[in-house]
């Protein structure tokens, strides 16, 4: 396999992403003088940190040539799972008031605080492990496997409370969802920390380099002594982990566990990764690009809100953006994504 030397247009496509981001910031600033206000920036970061976290996990998966459609369902599942853990009493008797918002809920945690979260992480990671393993073991494209899991996990989440949210969250979850540190919103801090961690993992560890190698050409990686199983499966565990993190954060923001949240978020995450320049073929792409991709989508939605465009046409615009972004990539680089 041989690739051609970088042409000037490719350089443009390489940095075009940052240029687009800059352009969107300028447009936003012109449209609204309040754009650079603290509250607007803080809001923008907070709202995008959820998609941001999901797309981090998604980047790992896509770098190995896979895709994870189950993250949206996983967010809903972890949200309701976490709420259930907090309402351990649900297992012995069904309290009347847990489906009703009472303001000061009675919590009956199953395990000591903190352990509950770990258990949620573990259970979700196991789901990630299973879907990754099935895809790897049977050589079925992860698109199909995670599609099955997307249906299955959402069904599971919605089934056992009949789709009802479970109210009541402890104080520290409230802090994770609404608190600030050095006047930066906590969700944004979590997102940015996780991003820096992911960048570091991918660039400076053998594991990270192995992800690029396996995603680039599994056979070449294998002949270099890389066992591909772990590199194929781990990204799904990461992805499920980040999804469960988002689920818990979302529970905090809504003060309830809701199995129906985050429908279709997997698409936003994939869109961000793809706009960020990661190849769906695997083996090429960066976390930095993904972060920029998330911000680009976030800013476009922000601008549409500023322009007071209704929610439905916004959805249409989102569809067009995904295609337009990829088309632009292809036109500039003359390469094919598939």
């Amino acid at each position: 396999m041989r690739i051609t030397k970088e042409k000037p247009v490719e350089l443009l496509s390489k940095y075009g992403l940052y240029f687009v981001l800059l352009l969107l910031i300028v447009v936003s600033a012109i449209l609204s003088p309040l754009f650079f206000s603290y509250s607007n920036i803080a809001n923008l970061l907070t709202y995008n940190s959820f998609t941001g976290l999901l797309s981090l996990g998604m980047t790992f998966v896509i770098l190995t040539g896979g895709i994870d459609l189950s993250v949206g369902s996983m967010v809903g599942f972890s949200s309701i799972l976490y709420a259930t853990m907090l309402h351990g009493a649900i297992f012995t008797f069904m309290p009347d008031n847990i489906f009703i918002y009472t303001g000061s809920p009675q919590l009956t945690p199953l395990f000591p605080q903190g352990i509950n979260i770990v258990v949620v992480f573990l259970i979700c990671s196991v789901f990630g492990f299973i879907s990754g393993s099935i895809s790897y073991k049977f050589r079925i494209h992860s698109f199909i496997v995670t599609l099955c899991f997307m249906i299955f996990i959402r069904g599971l989440a919605v089934s056992y409370t009949h789709g009802q949210p479970l109210f009541g969250m402890p104080e520290y979850i409230n802090f994770i969802a609404y608190g600030t540190f050095l006047s930066i919103p906590m969700p944004a801090i979590i997102w940015l920390t996780a991003s820096v961690f992911s960048i570091f993992l991918l660039r400076y560890t053998r594991f990270g380099r192995g992800i690029y190698a396996v995603g680039g050409d599994e056979e070449a990686a294998r002949l270099s002594g890389i066992k591909s199983a772990i590199y194929r499966i781990m990204p799904f565990i990461f992805s499920a982990f980040f999804a469960s993190l988002v689920g818990i954060m979302m529970s905090g923001r809504m003060a309830c566990g809701d199995p129906k949240i985050a429908q279709g978020w997997e698409l936003d995450a994939i869109a961000a990764v793809v706009i960020g320049g990661t190849s769906l073929f695997g083996g090429r792409g960066t976390i930095g690009g993904t972060v920029v991709g998330v911000l680009i989508i976030g800013l476009i939605i922000n601008i549409m809100n500023l322009l007071e465009i209704d929610a439905y046409p916004q959805q249409m615009v989102k569809g067009v953006i995904i295609i337009a972004a990829l088309a632009l990539h292809n036109l500039l680089s003359g390469r094919r994504y598939s």
């Binding site: 041989r2 192995g210 190698a213 890389i226 083996g283």
Partner: peptide, 15 residues
């Protein structure tokens, strides 16, 4: 089998 999108050095020292 090579990894065209990784550097020469990284191909040599893969893993």
């Amino acid at each position: 089998p090579v990894l065209p999108y990784l550097s020469v050095a990284e191909n040599i020292f893969l893993a």
